[in-house]
């Protein structure tokens, strides 16, 4: 079965790689500017002035725009998860490649749980615009706090992991 797939996908390897690498770049960088220059400065202002109503209005607006803006990242991620295994098959790779095994562990154990939680917080139960529409201000404030915790705790994990994934994919390091 794998051999048939490999034979069928083999000629398309570079095309699949193009799609994979393009969407990895979208996944990694699409929110970088908004995160660094909008979300973090506004949330820092809120943490230093937690009772300033004007800062809170801006905080809520930025958070809701960020919920919307991560759509690029969240469209890219499933495409990466589909094209990654296709490359594995088409390229004839195996677990003998150290870089690939480490990359696989990073994707499954670090990025996947974070992205699942991010989908929930941004688009489903934790979506701030939807919660605001219910008129429940306590739930809204709790959702903002929850998302800030998520960004605080996930950013030191996902950013080095993403860079390490790109490094391993390019250098194909053997230990």
């Amino acid at each position: 079965m794998i051999d048939i797939l490999r034979e069928w996908l083999g000629p398309w390897y570079l095309y699949i790689k193009f799609v994979h690498v393009t969407f990895v770049m979208v996944w990694v960088w699409s929110t970088a500017h908004a995160y660094a220059y909008f979300v973090v400065p506004v949330f820092k202002a809120w943490r230093r002035h937690p009772d300033d109503d004007a800062v809170i209005v801006l905080r809520d607006w930025v958070m809701e725009r960020f919920d919307h803006g991560v759509i690029y990242e969240h469209v890219a991620y499933p495409i990466i998860l589909i094209t990654g295994p296709l490359l594995y098959i088409a390229g004839g790779w195996s677990t003998a490649a150290d870089w690939l095994v480490l990359k696989l562990a990073l994707v499954v154990l670090i990025t996947l749980p974070i992205e699942v939680l991010d989908y929930h917080l941004s688009h489903f139960g934790g979506n701030k615009a939807k919660i605001r529409a219910t008129g429940d201000s306590e739930k809204y404030e709790a959702a903002i706090h929850q998302h800030w915790y998520f960004l605080l705790y996930s950013s030191p994990m996902i950013m080095p992991a993403a860079l390490l994934i790109i490094f391993l994919a390019i250098t194909k390091t053997h230990f």
């Binding site: 949330f43 820092k44 202002a45 943490r47 230093r48 004007a54 800062v55 960004l151 605080l152």
Partner: peptide, 15 residues
């Protein structure tokens, strides 16, 4: 990131 210390002090709140 949480503004407990370090960078971020250059940002000003302008009404």
């Amino acid at each position: 990131t949480d503004a407990q210390y370090g960078s971020g002090s250059r940002w000003q709140l302008i009404p």
